[in-house]
Simulated scan of single mutants.
Amino acid sequence: MQHMNNMNMYPTAVSPSQMNMPSMPQPMQVMVVEPFVYQALMSLKGKRVVLDTTRGPVNGIVVDAKPDHVVIQERDSTFFVRTCEIIWIMPETGK
């Protein structure tokens, strides 16, 4: 917003606080953590699992688990799956 200065009639910048206007809220980053899903994934590190996700199933060994994602290894493929996309987790049993 601009304001006319009485001294020289050229516009000068005025901040919202100078005009008693509220400033716009700033965006905040939000991360959803599902502690029980994270705990379950941590307990399954090194084991074979099937994860059902919103995009379909993922099979493999749990290599690593973080609060926001899990790393699944299957042969030469590595999958990084966001925990918020997991519907259910099933450990695979040896046959």
Rank of each mutant, 00 (worst) to 15 (best):
G94Q: 09
L51I: 13
Q26I: 10
M1C: 07
V37W: 08
I87A: 12
I61K: 07
Y10N: 06
K45V: 09
I72H: 00
A65C: 05
M21W: 06
N20C: 08
R55G: 10
G56E: 03
M31I: 10
S15V: 10
D52R: 02
N59E: 14
P11L: 15
I61V: 15
N6G: 10
V70Q: 01
R55D: 05
T83C: 14
V32P: 00
R55Q: 09
D76K: 15
P25D: 08
G60N: 03
I61W: 01
S15A: 09
V70P: 00
V49Y: 03
A65G: 06
P67K: 03
T54G: 11
Y38E: 06
T93K: 14
V50A: 10
I87Y: 07
S43W: 03
S23P: 03
V71A: 02
M28K: 15
Q39M: 09
N6D: 14
G46I: 12
P57F: 03
T78R: 12
V49F: 02
Y10R: 13
Q39D: 10
D76Y: 06
P27A: 04
T53L: 02
V63F: 06
M19H: 09
K66M: 13
C84F: 13
M7R: 09
D68Y: 01
E34P: 02
T12K: 08
R75N: 14
Q18I: 05
V62P: 00
T78N: 07
R82Q: 11
M4I: 15
F80G: 06
P35R: 07
N8D: 15
L41H: 02
G46T: 15
T12M: 04
D76M: 11
K95G: 13
M7L: 10
S23H: 07
S17V: 07
V14N: 08
M28E: 14
K95A: 11
E92F: 07
P91W: 11
S77V: 03
I72N: 00
V62F: 01
E92T: 09
A40E: 08
M19E: 05
K45G: 05
